[in-house]
Design a protein around this nucleic acid. Structure first.
Lengths: 144, 144
DNA sequence: TCAGCAATTGATACCATGTCTCAGTGAGAT
DNA sequence: ATCTCACTGAGACATGGTATCAATTGCTGA
C-alpha cells in the first residue's frame, strides 16, 4: 500500500473527504521526500489554492501524519511522520531532519518537577547539529 | 544600581548609544515585570516607533538581556534574563515563565550523538506545565 | 564651538506564515 | 432529482517582524 493510499484511508476513516485538491497536496508532500515548507507546497500545488494547501497541512498535522519542525532561525518546516510524541535533530549543514524515537528528557522532567514544584505537562524540544554525512564532508573545526 | 542603569551601561559598554527611545523601551520592558510581548511594548512605547521597539528588542536579545520564549500555541513572548544558556517552564495556568538554571538535557544529547552520528551543536527546549501556585488553586484532575 | 560623520529614528512598505470570509461547487444520501 | 454539507479558491485580513530611506541626533575632533 502506497503512502498516499495510506493517508487517504486515514482521512476517510475520520470522515474527511478525499478530494482532488487534497490528493494533490498529499502527493506533493510525499514527493518532497517527506520534508517541506508550506510555501513549497503552495508553489508546487498550483491546482489547489493557498488556503486549501494550508488547510490540508493543518488537517494532516491533526491526523498525526505530518508534524511541524522549528528551525534554528525560527522558520517552520514540515515533516511526514507517523509517530506520536517525538523530537527532531535538524542538520545545520544539509537541513535534513531526523526523527528521534526516544523522548530524551523524561528523567530531566521528573527532576525539574521535584525542584520547581511545576507539574510538567508538555514540552517542546528541537536539536540542531551536523549529521554524520556533513561531518565527513567538512570536518568539525574546518572553516574559512 | 537599577536594572535600567545596569542595562544602559551594558549598551554603552558595547558601543551602542543610549537614546531616549531605547531608554523608554527598556523601561517598558522592566515595567512589564520582566515578561512581555513585542506588541505590548509597541503599545506601551507610544513615543518610540514600531521599528525602533523591535530593533531594541533584538538588541537586548543580542546583549543577552532578554530572551525569547516560545509558548505552546506558537506565539512568542520575551523575558528579561541575564543568564546565558538556559530553558524555561511556562505555566499553562497563569502564564508565568520561570528560568531553569540547569540545562537538563546534556546527558541526553550525548546519548543522541552516539546513536545518530549527529554532532549536536545547539538545542531549543521549552517546558509547559502548572506551577505550584496554580496547582494549589485548582488541583490536578479537577475540571469542568 | 562647530562641522562632519555615523548611529539612530520613525514612517511606511514589505515579507512570511497563516487564518477568515464568502460565494460557489460538487459528492453522497434520500 | 435535489438537498445538504463538506469543501474549494480568491482574496482580505492578522500577526510578528524586517528593510528602506530620509531626517535627526549626538559624539568627536579640529
Amino acid at each position: 500500500m502506497s503512502d498516499l493510499e495510506n493517508i487517504t484511508l486515514k482521512l476517510e476513516a475520520l470522515g474527511h473527504r478525499v478530494t482532488p485538491s487534497r490528493r494533490a497536496v498529499i502527493a506533493a508532500v510525499l514527493a518532497k521526500d517527506g520534508q517541506f515548507t508550506a510555501d513549497e507546497l503552495v508553489t508546487r500545488c498550483r491546482g489547489a489554492g493557498r488556503a486549501t494547501v494550508f488547510r490540508t497541512i493543518r488537517l494532516l498535522t491533526e491526523l498525526g501524519v505530518v508534524c511541524r519542525v522549528l528551525l534554528e532561525d525560527g522558520s517552520v518546516r514540515y515533516l511526514v511522520s507517523q509517530r506520536g510524541h517525538h523530537h527532531h535533530v535538524v542538520c545545520t549543514g544539509c537541513g535534513r531532519v531526523q526523527d528521534l524515537d526516544l523522548c530524551a528528557i523524561k528523567d530531566a522532567i521528573r527532576d525539574l518537577s521535584d525542584q520547581t514544584g511545576y507539574e510538567v505537562e508538555g514540552h517542546w524540544l528541537e536539536l540542531y547539529g551536523r549529521c554524520a554525512e556533513c561531518r565527513a564532508k567538512v570536518p568539525a573545526g574546518a572553516s574559512a
